[in-house]
């Protein structure tokens, strides 16, 4: 019996008795001609990806921003990734953000590339009360700098309500984080999904930056070109 295993845009038929390590190698191959076209749809203007260690609160952040609510319940880890499309007003235009909330668990790491490929913004989260999450953040920033140069990076320190309640539990110093942000040319926000502090501001900033970016200009120009072409077609 042969089984289809998909390797990006290439399909290989691999026999079941194929050597395991070979299969593994095959499986890790990145598609040669990846355009990122497939994973971003027309109905979305800007692809935004959330990255960061597990339990830093990526899902809560999206939940707060999209649904304006906060679950105080027991922790539920994300499986794979979740996608939400959210319209946002910038100036006189309405953009649609396609937000990818990824799972922080290590086993999904190999998959993460399909989520950040072609993203115009990455919100890399860390837990203000957990220094190890900041170490993990640096990993993601490096990964983005290597693979996705045009992607704008936003650092997001989460759970700031906990810090406000008890300053002593802060493990990531604000100035250290800010220095690092400057070094990697990233924006930095400290948010609380529980109170909603800075959450809307973060996404607004993401949308505005995208609006002002060249990518957006190019996109609108292309659209106008399209329309003009269509019009001229109609005339003939």
């Amino acid at each position: 019996m042969s089984i289809f295993l998909n390797l990006g845009i290439h399909q290989h038929i691999i026999r079941r008795n194929c050597e395991f390590h070979e299969l593994w190698k095959l499986y890790n191959i990145e598609p040669l001609f990846s355009t990122g076209r497939n994973m971003s749809s027309q109905r979305v203007d800007a692809k935004v990806v959330l990255l960061g260690k597990e339990y830093v609160g990526k899902t809560s952040l999206v939940e707060r921003y999209v649904h304006k609510r906060f679950h105080g319940g027991p922790y539920q880890n994300t499986i794979g990734a979740a996608f939400v499309a959210k319209p946002i007003q910038v100036g006189d235009k309405v953009l649609t953000l396609g937000i990818w909330d990824t799972a922080g668990a290590e086993r999904y790491e190999a998959m993460s590339r399909i989520y950040y490929r072609g993203a115009c913004a990455a919100i890399v989260c860390y837990d203000l009360t957990d220094s190890s999450s900041f170490v993990r953040l640096k990993f993601w920033v490096k990964e983005l700098q290597n693979c996705e140069q045009q992607c704008k990076i936003y650092l997001c320190g989460t759970k700031s309500d906990l810090i406000e309640a008890d300053r002593s539990i802060r493990q990531v110093d604000y100035h250290d984080a800010q220095d690092y942000a400057e070094e990697v040319k990233a924006e930095i926000f400290e948010t609380s999904s529980k109170t909603g502090r800075n959450v809307d501001e973060l996404f607004q900033k993401v949308a505005e930056d995208f609006h002002n970016s060249t990518a957006f200009q190019v996109m609108t120009e292309e659209r106008e070109m399209d329309q003009r072409q269509r019009k001229s077609c109609c005339h003939h």
Partner: peptide
């Protein structure tokens, strides 16, 4: 987690 949006795993 699948109630939050469209899951892809």
């Amino acid at each position: 987690s699948f109630r939050e949006g469209e899951g892809w795993t």
